[in-house]
Design a protein around this nucleic acid. Structure first.
Length: 647
RNA sequence: GCCGAUGUAGCUCAGAGGUAGAGCACUUCCUUGGUAAGGAAGAGGUCAGGGGUUCAAUUCCCCUCAUCGGCUCCA
């Protein structure tokens, strides 16, 4: 008698060994049709794998991450089978499921596999899927496994086998394909109803650029054809929101080959957005006691030798700038913090002075490999809304909480509702790669965890993700399409104060070392704006929009009245423009809509006579006729609702 | 940096070994209009750059550069 405990706490009893599929069938036929895998005592298993002892069981369907990943893992095998059919002799490396689908890294030997080949592989996969071939699990001895892959001459699998223990090795077979695999898998290939091979990319064997470069084939599958269609539509939507495309269309920023790759040029409209974000942050920061400072774009190399950045990044950064006669060596500023340390040192500090908070919108330059550059999210020169808080050790937690408040204020004003706080701690198995004492690390890590839990943030803890000088808290924001982006960051640093020998005089009249906190709620303005563009699909909040309205005269006869309205609106601190072109009103509306201008003010004969404007809201339509003062009130009310002052 | 793809008008793209095409945008003219594209004409190009094959190359080949998709990296 075997007892199976289900997630709802109910217990089902079976005579002898059962499979998860048996359990699913005993619950309902529909569930049996939809179930893909099962979590048995916390481990994901094949549905057909016999359960021989009392267990807890939860059945996984397409709606569970575990169900999806099982399906995609099996799909990787299916793709491998199709590829082996067309390209016998290829060598397979690894083929895992990923967030959206799966990939397989493959050594095609001399054959150059291209995107033209994808279609026939897709078709073959569907063909094989229709055969409903079972995925068969087989435990195998290490010796037999080595023999199998030696015969297949697959050095990648052999290398993987080296790390595996005998007695713990399984093969999975479906149709004519057998692979070394831990599993689990879906019962048979018939569950896969829709296949799309997305792209091909190079990938290094085991992520090591010194090793063999393999061909990575990305794909995704679905249990229903309709879901594939929906997924492809979602991707199209994401493309429309791409900040590179919208940035160009809306005239926000550009790049120039002459200026250099990865160096964004802000156009007037983009600059307007940027400046507004800066003003917004400055205002909030002044209220929280930050002191603005300013530092130059270059500094002596010795500054970064002192900070330790040179040792760690010197080789992989822009190389030094030298003076012609004196032989001085400067580096482009990759960080603001060393400068701020020197500002801290400029005047002696008492414990009564702390915390000191130096803030600077500092533009920094970092060498990024050419292949890494990506729109505004990955650039070589960018501006941080940087600040460094120098405080006493007993103030760390309090300061940390204040920064969290500031970040939450920013996110709220910009409608970033879905975020998670990622706490990055040391890799517990490799503590040697971090600078600083054990005691300090433990203190800092504890302070961050306490602050996030007291603020009630949705938190995930990642081990091994800390910076080399201290633990950090990153704010990961999800955009409307569910993609995750890292924005704001707060980092504790016990290292730089040490290296720069920063100190303050305590109440005991002794010298003490302050703690430093780096923080940037936006992170980089460039990346932040990129995410903001994709988040809003270019429809910025009204307070941030460079053009809040467009006055659209019905015909050129009313251009004068339009100018009058524009003048009036200037008094209300609302900004906009007049579309004076010789076009019909339909055309002007269409263009304003496409330019995502929030309000359209249509003025013709009746409006001019009554000294009014017909208001149309972008994406919504006609709102009716208002006086200029009434319209100004509508706008200001909308802004006030969003932009609650920080205090 | 590495692998692969791409590079034609300001933008989106078509094209083919024999003097370069469309739509939108732009300029001028006609039209003066009521809530998502009025009409006509015009201007706009070293087909990314360099080399080669050819009677002839934007087209085929090689190199370089840039962009895109990944890998690796990200203080």
């Amino acid at each position: 008698m075997i007892k199976i405990t289900l997630p709802d706490g109910s217990v089902r009893e079976f005579d002898g060994a059962v499979t998860s599929m048996d359990v699913a069938t005993s619950i309902s036929e529909g569930l049996a049709r939809n179930v893909l895998a099962a979590k048995v005592n916390g481990e994901i298993w094949d549905l057909m794998r016999p359960i021989n002892e009392d267990s807890t069981l939860s059945l996984l369907t397409w709606n569970d991450d575990g169900g999806k990943s099982t399906m995609w893992h099996s799909s990787a095998h299916l793709m491998a089978e199709a590829l082996e059919f067309y390209y016998p002799g290829i060598k397979l490396a690894i083929g895992p499921p990923i967030e959206n689908g799966f990939y397989y890294d493959i050594d095609f030997g001399d054959y150059e596999f291209t995107e033209k080949d994808l279609k026939k592989v897709e078709d073959k996969m569907l063909d094989l899927a229709r055969q409903k071939n079972d995925f068969i699990r087989q435990e195998i001895s290490k010796a037999d496994a080595i023999k199998y892959f030696t015969e297949k001459d697959d050095q990648y699998k052999l290398e993987l086998l080296e790390d595996l223990e005998d007695g713990n090795i399984t093969f999975y077979t479906q149709g004519n394909f057998t692979d070394l695999c831990r599993g689990p898998h879906i019962p048979n290939t018939g569950y896969i109803k829709a296949v799309k091979l997305m792209s091909i990319a190079g990938a290094y064997w085991r992520g090591d650029e010194k090793r063999q470069q393999l061909t990575r084939v990305y794909g995704i599958t679905f249990p229903k054809a309709k879901e594939l269609t929906e997924y492809l539509e979602m991707l199209e939507e994401a493309k429309k929101r791409d900040h590179r495309k919208l940035g160009k269309e809306l005239g926000l920023f550009t790049f120039s080959q002459k200026v250099g790759m990865g160096l964004p040029l802000w156009l007037p409209k983009g600059t307007a957005v940027r400046d507004r974000l800066i003003d917004f942050m400055k205002e909030a920061q002044v209220k929280t006691g930050y002191l603005p400072v300013a530092t130059p774009h270059i500094a002596l190399k010795d500054l970064y030798v002192c900070s330790g950045h040179y040792e760690k990044y010197g080789e992989d950064s822009f190389q030094s700038i030298k003076t012609p006669h004196e032989g001085e060596e400067f580096l482009l500023k990759p960080m603001n913090c060393p400068h701020h340390c020197e500002i801290f040192k400029a005047e002696p500090k008492s414990y009564k002075d702390l915390p000191v908070r130096f803030a600077e919108f500092g533009t920094v330059y970092r060498y990024e490999q050419s292949g890494e550059l990506h729109g505004l999210t990955r650039v070589r020169g960018f501006t941080q809304d940087d600040a460094h808080i120098f405080c006493r050790p007993d103030q760390v937690e309090e300061e940390f909480k204040k920064v969290i408040d500031l970040v939450l204020y920013v996110f709220n004003a910009l409608d970033f509702e879905n975020f998670t706080a990622q706490v990055s701690l040391r890799d517990p198995y490799n503590k040697s790669k971090y600078i600083g004492s054990e005691e300090n690390w433990e203190k800092a890590e504890a302070a961050i965890i306490k602050a996030t839990s007291e603020k009630g943030l949705p938190t995930v803890v990642e081990y091994g993700e800390a910076a080399f000088y201290g633990p950090k808290l990153d704010f990961m924001v999800k955009d409307a399409l569910g993609r995750s982006w890292q924005l704001g960051t707060i980092q504790v640093d016990y290292n730089l104060p040490e290296r720069f020998e920063l100190e303050y005089t305590g109440s005991d009249n002794q010298k003490h070392r302050p703690v430093m906190i780096h923080r940037a709620p936006f992170g980089s303005l460039e990346r932040f704006i990129a995410v903001l563009i994709e988040h809003t699909s270019g429809k910025f909040p009204l307070w941030l929009n460079p053009e809040q309205f467009a006055i659209l005269p019905i015909s050129e006869k009313y251009n004068d009245y339009a100018a009058e309205v524009l003048n009036l609106l200037k008094n209300y601190d609302i900004r906009g423009l007049i579309d004076e072109r010789n076009e019909k009103i339909g055309k002007k509306i269409r263009d304003a809509e496409l330019n995502k201008i929030p309000y359209m003010l249509i003025v013709g004969e009746s409006e001019a006579n009554e000294k009014k404007v017909a208001v149309r809201r972008q994406g919504e339509g006609d709102l009716g006729v208002f006086s200029v003062a009434e319209f100004a009130e509508i706008v200001n009310k909308e802004i006030e609702e969003k932009l609650i002052k920080f205090n």
